Simulated assay, not measured.
Amino acid sequence: MRAFRTLVALAAALTATGLFGSPAQAADGDVAWTVRTASNSFGADRSSFSYAVNPGGKVDDTMVVANHGKTALDLAVYAADGFTTQTGQLDLLTRDKQSKAIGVWLRAGGEQVTVQPGKSVDVPFTVAVPDNATPGDYVGGVVTSLTQPDQEQGINVERRLGIRVKLRVGGELTPQLTIENLHVAYAGPGNPFGKGDATVTYTIHNTGNAIESAQQAVSLSGPFGWLKASASSVQPTPELLPGESWTVTVPVHGVAPAVRLAATATLTPLVTDASGSTTALDTIAATAHGWAVPWTLVLFVVVLIAVVVAIVVLTRRGRAQRKAREDARVQEAVKQAIRAKEAQTS
């Protein structure tokens, strides 16, 4: 049985489809095709499919597939749920992964489409939202796929090309981001009086039902808010789908070893509405504490104390020895005086 893999390069092309206005294109030698949105009542030259539908509702639309190669193409057509990759890009589940939303609700007119060289074909599809669908945002995609054998490697290679589908199911929208697992680590300098570097790590969790990104800021301070330091720049988060998490690691330079540090992460959530307008929500913040002990200085103080203690001990020991010698000398003198007196009387 042949092994199977998805060609990553075209998965990246699929990601770009939802972000740029130009049609997505897949090319490999004589195999080349593009996908784009159809011009209809939803608009022309759309970069992706975007709908607002109430539970129980449905919407019909069309994707256009064009063959720019020299041979006919037999492409599979299917839908899949989306997810945010570790690089912050949108990707779609592969066919062997189980979708739960758009990948189930979107159905194309057929599971296969044949496109002749130099021709284009309309691929109609329907998005039917269940009556019990939870309100909020969903992201997925409608995909065209070409699977070919790679004789040299003995595997089947799937090249995917598709268009993002964003769906907002009607009902109460409750955007919510939380900051979790916040902690700070400190690395002091060799100079006992210098400043070191801190690393602040936390997880942003989208616990609401809307797609959200966020502006970020990170700051540090010592006891009573003294010796403040801030991260020079923190990149905004990618758009996180409901339920997704994103781990953030922020370096902060020039941090004084204040013994006890307070690290504060601040987020300004951003929500985009159906018209494409972005709204900033109330900021949220979380604080955690960590140690920033100047170990070099501590070692210096310990050594200094040890030296002082040694000097005191040696000084006292010297005094005791001198006193003992003086006492012995006095005792010997007394003995000699007594002997001399006894010799005179005898």
Rank of each mutant, 00 (worst) to 15 (best):
A11S: 14
T15Q: 03
A16D: 09
T17A: 04
P23Q: 06
D28Q: 13
D28C: 08
G29H: 07
D30Q: 13
V31M: 02
V35M: 10
A38S: 15
A38C: 14
A66R: 13
H68I: 06
A76Y: 03
D91S: 15
D96S: 11
W105E: 11
T114N: 10
P135E: 03
P135K: 06
Q148K: 10
P149S: 04
Q151I: 01
Q153I: 00
R164M: 11
G171M: 05
A185I: 07
G194Y: 08
D197K: 12
D197G: 01
V200R: 09
T203V: 13
H205R: 13
N206S: 07
A217I: 07
S219H: 08
F224Y: 12
S230V: 10
Q235R: 10
P236Q: 05
P238L: 00
P242W: 06
W246L: 01
A258D: 03
A263V: 05
A263S: 00
T266P: 01
L267C: 02
A274N: 07
D282S: 13
H289V: 03
G290N: 07
W295K: 12
T296P: 11
T296Y: 14
I311F: 13
V313F: 14
R316K: 11
G318Y: 09
Q321N: 12
R325E: 10
V330E: 09
E332A: 15
A333E: 12
K335I: 05
A343I: 13
